[in-house]
């Protein structure tokens, strides 16, 4: 095969050959070393889960809290999160991650506890647990991955599926008259006095990834100060069940999900104190 080299390729090959830039001083990014296992993930290519896992691991390492963190994994695509995150973790029954996290936090109040849940888990079967955990103001971090679909079971309608969006159980599009409207869980929990910091993010662009990382750091700091529940929604993609390429899915996310689930802080400490 006769591969055509671009100008860029030639340029980089030349630099590598001449200057040997592959030295430790030139490293711009390394995967987290201790809070994450070096193992391939089972997530589909382009899926947001892997990025959020990596961010969590980075934050845990950078904050030096690996011995203090206990995570709770849900039922859903991220059911095996503990195969990637090298921290103490508990696997919860479908929808019950925030109740499990409550149990852990109540007996180990000095530890930092988070739950990691998808939309079906957190906003359908686990709605009661989510609302009451937030309403009690449990000092935990809830990370809510919202991709508007049931990923693991193969693309069924989720509570957060957009109006008219197709899924295997809304094959003609979500008809809100009979199937209900997409549930804005994050806006809902922001109404509760128990939540301290409620914010919505995405990982579809590098800038957004950086913002999410800051939100995770803040949430763990607030948790250390026992301020109440921190709730981070991550509007994410599901290229496999949306039946798109990763790039298409991110574009679709921006054009369809974000207008309905706008990014940004919904409740911040300052607002709360005012």
């Amino acid at each position: 095969m006769n591969e055509k080299k671009t100008l860029d390729d030639q340029h980089y090959e030349k630099i590598i050959a001449e200057e040997s830039i592959c030295t430790q001083d030139h490293v711009v990014y390394e995967p987290p070393k201790s809070a994450m296992y070096e193992t391939p993930m089972h997530y589909c290519p382009g899926c947001g889960h892997g990025v959020v896992h990596r961010l969590l691991a980075e934050v845990i390492e950078e904050m030096g809290i690996i011995q203090d963190v206990i995570g709770v994994a849900p039922v859903g695509c991220s059911v095996l999160a503990y195969n990637y995150l090298n921290i103490d973790m508990s696997e919860a029954a479908h929808g019950r991650a925030s109740a499990v996290a409550t149990g852990i936090k109540r007996v180990l109040p000095e530890k930092l506890v988070f739950s990691y849940q998808g939309d079906g888990d957190l906003a359908a079967i686990g709605t009661a647990e989510t609302l009451h955990t937030c309403n009690r103001g449990e000092n935990i971090l809830i990370i809510f991955i919202n991709n508007g679909i049931y990923g693991m079971t193969g693309g069924q309608m989720a509570p957060t599926t957009l109006a008219n969006m197709k899924s295997t159980t809304s094959p003609f599009g979500r008809d809100v008259a009979t199937m209900g409207s997409p549930l804005k869980m994050t806006d809902l929990v922001a109404q509760l006095p128990g939540t301290y910091y409620v914010t919505r993010h995405s990982v579809h662009k590098a800038g957004n990834v950086r913002k999410l990382k800051k939100a995770i750091v803040k949430s763990f700091e607030y948790q250390k100060e026992k301020k109440g529940t921190c709730f981070i929604e991550v509007v994410s993609n599901c290229p496999s069940n949306w039946k798109m390429t990763p790039v298409e899915s991110n574009k679709w996310l921006e054009e369809n999900m974000l207008p309905f689930y706008p990014l940004g802080d919904i409740k911040t400490p300052n607002q709360k104190e005012n």
Binding site: S90, A92, R96, A99, T102, G103, E129
Partner: peptide, 11 residues
């Protein structure tokens, strides 16, 4: 349902 899952977490 929540109580038993809190028990699970704490146990």
């Amino acid at each position: 349902v929540a109580s038993i899952n809190m028990v699970y977490g704490a146990a």
